[in-house]
Structure formats: structure tokens, C-alpha cells
Simulated scan of single mutants.
Amino acid sequence: MEKSLKCENIFNGNIIKVERHRVELQDGSESYREVVRHKGAVAVVPVFEDKVVLVKQFRFPVNEELLEIPAGKLEEGEDPYDCAIRELKEETGFVAQEIQKIGELYTSPGFSDEKIHIFLARVVPYGEPEPDFGEFIEKVELPFQDIVKLIISGKILDGKTVAGILLSEKYLSGGEEND
């Protein structure tokens, strides 16, 4: 186990905070760790009729338009369930008839503490998407197996989407929910 000996705050932003730690390693030597702190997020696998609803949006850090499951960051003190309902409505205009948590994951634990809570939702159309300022999102509805093929072929590279589809597989392919 590593022990933080000194922590220096490098950056405080709206979404992340960056720290630099001097740490004592397991063998007693010292090193440095740069850590990105994040409040956490949710991602939702929305199922409408026989399709999964994805969103297509440009992601500046990778300079690409990506196909993803709807997702968003948790607000301070916000319950992940409430965030999932909010993000689903904002990004797709759909509302959940049924929603359940199917997993959680650390996005990149080598440098960040961000944890994403993943939900599966049976949805119905409600209205138009209401994306946040600066978000430009296109809704895409595809059969589950087509999304799996896009993942396998390397056309879907977003980690939360890959994990969300994998975690929802037993629910969407006719498998038992309580395996």
C-alpha cells in the first residue's frame, strides 16, 4: 500500500481537481502520483422497444464524434439514481418506466478516482432532449446486437458504453436477471 506524505493542489476546475502527491511506496522508497479528483458520474443504457438508445456527440479531448450511452456527472451530494433520471431526460428526451442499477466502475484508477454508476432503463418517449449549454447531441437507436458488433469492430471506443452494454447483456439477450 502507498502512503501520501504530502499533497499539493495543482488545479481546481468545475469538473475536476488535480493533486500531486509525494508518496511512500511499499518498499519504503518515495515517488510522486498525480491524481485527478472527480465527483463521479452515471451512465444509462436506455432500452426503447427492441432498441438501445445511444447519443452521438463530439468529444473535444479526443477530437472525435463518439457514439455513447447517455451519461453525466453527479452534482454535489446528488444521488446516482436521481442523476440517471435527469441525464436520461436531458440527453434523450426519454423517461424511465423502470430503472435499475446494474454496476459501477472506476474509469481510470491509475490517475483518477472517478466512479461511474451504470443503470439499465426501460424508457418511453417524453419530449425533446434538453442538453446542457454547449452540448450538441444526436439520438441514435440501434438493436443491441448491432451495438455489440460496433464495439467488437472498434467503432465504439467509449469505455462506459462498452461496460454498460456488457453489464446489460444478460438483461437484454433474454438471460436471467438474477444470475
Rank of each mutant, 00 (worst) to 15 (best):
C83E: 10
I137Y: 02
L150F: 05
C83N: 04
G164N: 03
G13K: 11
V35R: 12
V47G: 01
D79E: 14
I15V: 14
C83A: 15
L66R: 14
F136L: 09
L105T: 05
E138S: 13
L25P: 07
N9S: 10
G127K: 08
I156M: 08
E91K: 14
E2D: 03
G110P: 02
F111P: 03
G110F: 09
D132A: 14
E34Y: 05
F58H: 15
H38C: 11
E76K: 05
V35C: 13
I156A: 06
D158S: 14
V23Q: 01
E128F: 06
E34S: 07
S31W: 09
V36D: 07
G93F: 12
V35I: 14
A121R: 05
P125M: 05
D82S: 11
E130G: 08
M1L: 11
K155D: 01
V95W: 04
I137G: 00
E177W: 12
Y32R: 00
Q97K: 13
V95P: 06
E24N: 06
K39Q: 11
D132M: 12
F144N: 01
G159V: 10
F94Q: 02
E114L: 09
D50Q: 11
K51H: 12
G164P: 03
K73G: 06
L66P: 09
K149R: 11
Q100Y: 13
L150P: 05
S108K: 13
R20F: 10
K6V: 01
G159T: 10
E19S: 01
K73H: 00
E30I: 00
G77T: 09
T161M: 05
A43C: 09
I99D: 07
Q57T: 14
